[in-house]
Nucleic acid binder design. Structure first.
Length: 411
RNA sequence: GGCGGGAUACCCGAGAGGCCAAAGGGAGCAGACUGUAAAUCUGCCGGGCGACGCCCUACGGAGGUUCGAAUCCUUCUCCCGCCA
């Protein structure tokens, strides 16, 4: 017998809160469920923080249900105050347009909109034409301000101030649910736990307007074992867009996760069977690195495809383990002439992206983080020359984790 | 509407005219130890620069006083108390 989709989500750690657990299970058991999650087009690309909802939708799709990814072009004009202590910076329509396109096509890589198995919608389609007075009379009358203010998401903002604009965000999101219910029969909204208030508001609205029962489910807000938010590193967000963050670096992000996060991440960010995950998670000490390798490979595969994942893994092996193909690790070529003249080390580190600026290189070298092959750099003016070459190339190392290969152009 | 308190870097939070790019903690980065992990100890920690110095930007916003302002004054915005 087929496993219930709710149970799958639950055992993989996706369920934080659910408006009606038993009913949702029943729903999944008896019909093809249309469910939606909203994504904010606040940037051109999503980052690892959005992976939880994305995986949530993918699970639904794999079980034969129909996911809707709502990219909030309309609500993006307002800005969700949930979990924020400051007002969000308002985005222009043009920016939102660009971001929408980026996010949409990105989600398509995970969900495959072209096959009609999943749908992407933009709520500006129905939010923008709204008539204010009509909206207040039809939708606004169902909302109790007293109740809204009691929500945790608003309470935080009661201290710093909350504009009327933002206060309306919840109405818009609730209205989204109503529209999707009416148009597509969408019965379930999912989202991060910070969305609980907005989701419940939607569930209420559909009941009041349509007398229908719809459901809400939230995912836990993931933090790493050290308490940091998912998807952030020193060099910025862990983008899902390969142009913003290469598959190699994406792979590295997962290889470097904390031991304590491995089991949880395997469950949430791969589709491996739980039995296999249990085996991998049982590994101890250095052996656990094997589990991280699989985590990184699977995660990269889901995001960037099979081929890119293979290449990234191979490049990582070349850079750290030895037996991979050096051509698959990040490589930059410099001309022989330039090298003969001597290149300042800092310059080379900046050029390869190992350091963001000269100043960063100075600090890094001072603390002993910079290496060329086996030579430790002391000063940013240290020169890199032909004598550093070994077989026409050499390796730059920035700390323990970042490596970059330099090859020489013959001409 | 009145009175009082407050806003400091990624976050928390000291500083009350020059010694302030601003104590301390957290986060982050790096070194040592390891396993590309954690914990621990140590260093760095606004940004830029051919760099023991120089140049930008910053103590809520805008002005002012002063040789000199995160610090004093005026005003605006927003928070928090108390009174109406």
């Amino acid at each position: 017998m087929k496993k219930n989709c709710y149970d799958i989500l639950n055992e993989r750690g996706f369920v934080r809160q659910c408006t009606a657990e038993a009913e949702v299970r029943e729903l999944f058991a008896k019909e093809t469920v249309t469910a939606y999650i909203g994504f904010d087009p606040t940037a051109r690309s999503l980052h690892a923080g959005s992976l939880v909802p994305i995986m949530g939708l993918m699970h639904l799709q794999r079980e034969g249900h129909r996911p809707i990814a709502l990219v909030g072009g309309g609500t993006g004009l307002i800005g969700d105050p949930s979990g924020r202590t400051e007002q969000r910076q308002l985005l222009t329509r043009e920016t939102l347009r660009e971001n929408f396109n980026g996010v949409r096509s990105q989600l398509g890589r995970f969900l495959g909109f072209d096959e009609g198995r999943a749908v992407a919608v933009d709520n500006s389609e129905w939010l923008e034409p709204l008539n204010y007075v009509d909206f207040l009379r039809d939708i606004g009358r169902h909302f109790s301000v007293n109740r809204m203010l009691s929500f945790e998401s608003y309470r935080q903002r009661m201290e710093k101030g909350l504009s009327f604009l933002e206060f309306n965000y919840q109405l818009c999101q609730a209205y989204d649910f109503l529209v999707l219910y009416q148009r597509t029969g969408c019965r379930l909204q999912m989202g991060g736990d910070d969305q609980w208030g907005n989701i419940v508001a939607g569930v209420d609205l559909v009941r009041r307007v349509e007398g229908a029962e719809v459901f809400g489910l939230t995912f836990p807000l993931l933090t790493t074992a050290t308490g940091a938010k998912m998807g952030k590193t020193a060099s910025g967000a862990v983008w899902l867009d390969g142009d913003l963050l290469s598959p190699y670096d994406y792979y590295q992000y997962w290889v470097n996760v904390d031991d304590r996060d491995v089991a949880r991440f395997l469950r949430m960010f791969t589709f491996l069977p739980l039995a296999q995950i249990d085996e991998l998670s049982a590994l101890e000490g250095a052996e656990l690195r094997h589990a991280k390798d699989i985590l990184a490979f699977e995660a990269t595969r889901i995001c960037h495809g099979d081929e890119a994942a293979q290449t990234a893994r191979d490049g990582a092996k070349a850079a750290f383990g030895g037996d991979g193909d050096l051509n698959n690790m990040p490589t930059t070529s410099v001309s022989r002439v330039r090298l003969a003249a001597g290149i300042r080390a800092a310059e080379l580190f900046v050029e390869t992206g190992l350091c963001r600026s000269n100043g960063e290189a100075v600090k890094a070298f001072r603390s002993g983080a910079g290496w060329i092959g086996d030579r430790q750099l002391k000063d940013h003016t240290d020169l890199v020359t032909l004598s550093d070459l070994a077989g026409g190339e050499f390796l730059l190392r920035m700390g323990k984790k970042r490596r970059h290969r330099i090859i020489v152009d013959i001409d």
